[in-house]
Amino acid sequence: MKKIMTKQVFERMQRVANDEGIIDALALDQRGSLVKMMKQAAADNGKPFSMQMVYDFKKLVSKVLSPKSSAILLDEQMGFEGIKAKAPETGLIMSYEKTGYDADTPGRLPSLIDNQSAQIMVEQGADALKVLIYLNTKDKAEVNQIKKAFTQRYGTEALAAQVPTFFEIVTYDDDYASDSIEFAREKPRMVIDAMKEYTKDEYHVSVLKMEMPFNPKYVKEWNDGGEYAYTEEEVKGYLKELSDAATRPFIFLSAGVPTPVFQRELRLAGSAGVKFSGVLSGRATWRDGINVYAKDGEAGLIDWLQHKGTQNVLDLKEILAANATPWFDIYGGMDNIEVVDAPEIK
């Protein structure tokens, strides 16, 4: 059966992917976490912190690295300078969710930015939208029902605006620290179950942005004889199960792991036959530049971006070329996509 896709959504999907249909995108929509990292870097280097540092950091990273990426993910709140600085040929994905969550309300419930809408972001130049939810698949049914309804509202709003939706899922369990071995043991099933649910047609998600279904810290062959939760062979099985559950394109997020670790994860996914369509790589690409910027200012950061930052992007491109699958192949290839005109909404 052919995949029906409107002309607007199809063309925008093509704009956020490279010529081979791979999404080699740069994630730069971090807000609260980036402020925290920048404050720490400023303090470590004996410099005063200001929000202008965050705005300028996003602008410089976007200016130097966006020309080498198929798309860049930015937020209008702190990344407005980065949006203006991005390369014209690079696709723009815009964040629609508020940063963080209300810690006083159980369930880490998501919410959208108050002064944004799918239509407004399209008018601001967005080729795609992105929303993140925190998900505990074992949480109370009423909590997860709120998240399902939230996702459907997001998907149907974007459908009306004829803009692709990126949907990021970050799993958690409040009973365990995110870096604990206890949560590491839960994570594979949580991530796979999240895929099984949110790959359903009813959510109108264009691209799922998924975690690796394991914690690399607890892979037996990767941790120099420390305690482990799984072997590399077991991890390959989790990766394949995740891939087999997908009914639409999905990409991997870097989740803040060091660059070499993320690269190793992607190669492992490729060796397991995982049909992922690219990445949205954030901190793994640019995190080390924060301290360089705090220490050496704009000139230091530009130099770092032109050398190490650029090399990080190029290394990812090489890995994706060898291991990733074009986004349209999940639908049986370009010939199996029927592009239709969408009704005009006035």
Rank of each mutant, 00 (worst) to 15 (best):
L135T: 04
N136F: 00
N136W: 00
T137I: 15
K138V: 09
K138Y: 13
D139N: 12
D139C: 04
D139P: 07
A141I: 14
A141F: 10
E142Q: 13
E142I: 08
E142W: 12
V143C: 07
V143Q: 10
N144L: 09
N144K: 08
N144P: 09
N144F: 02
N144T: 11
Q145Y: 07
Q145R: 15
Q145E: 14
I146S: 04
I146H: 12
K147Q: 01
K147M: 01
K147W: 04
K147E: 02
K148E: 14
K148C: 09
A149N: 15
A149G: 11
A149C: 10
F150I: 06
F150A: 07
T151S: 12
T151H: 06
T151K: 01
T151C: 04
Q152H: 01
R153Q: 14
Y154C: 12
Y154P: 02
G155Y: 00
G155A: 05
G155I: 07
T156H: 13
E157I: 05
E157F: 01
A158M: 01
A158C: 10
L159S: 13
L159K: 13
A160Y: 10
A160H: 11
A160W: 09
A161E: 09
A161G: 05
A161C: 02
Q162W: 05
Q162N: 11
Q162V: 10
V163D: 03
V163E: 06
P164Q: 04
P164L: 05
P164E: 03
T165P: 08
F166K: 07
F167S: 02
F167H: 11
F167I: 00
E168Q: 08
I169L: 09
I169F: 04
I169H: 02
V170D: 11
V170G: 06
V170A: 11
T171M: 09
T171F: 09
Y172W: 08
Y172R: 02
D173G: 06
D175I: 03
D175C: 13
D175P: 06
D175W: 06
Y176R: 07
Y176W: 10
Y176Q: 06
A177D: 15
A177S: 15
A177K: 15
A177G: 15
S178G: 09
S178N: 14
S178L: 13
S178D: 14
S180L: 03
S180K: 08
S180E: 07
I181Q: 03
I181G: 00
E182Q: 13
E182T: 05
F183P: 06
F183I: 09
F183E: 07
F183D: 05
F183W: 08
F183M: 02
F183N: 04
A184I: 10
A184Q: 08
R185K: 15
R185M: 11
E186V: 01
E186S: 12
K187H: 05
K187T: 05
K187Y: 08
K187Q: 09
P188L: 03
P188H: 05
R189D: 15
R189L: 14
M190A: 14
M190V: 03
V191K: 00
V191C: 03
V191S: 03
I192T: 05
D193F: 01
D193C: 05
A194G: 13
A194Q: 00
A194L: 02
A194M: 04
M195P: 04
M195I: 08
M195V: 11
M195D: 02
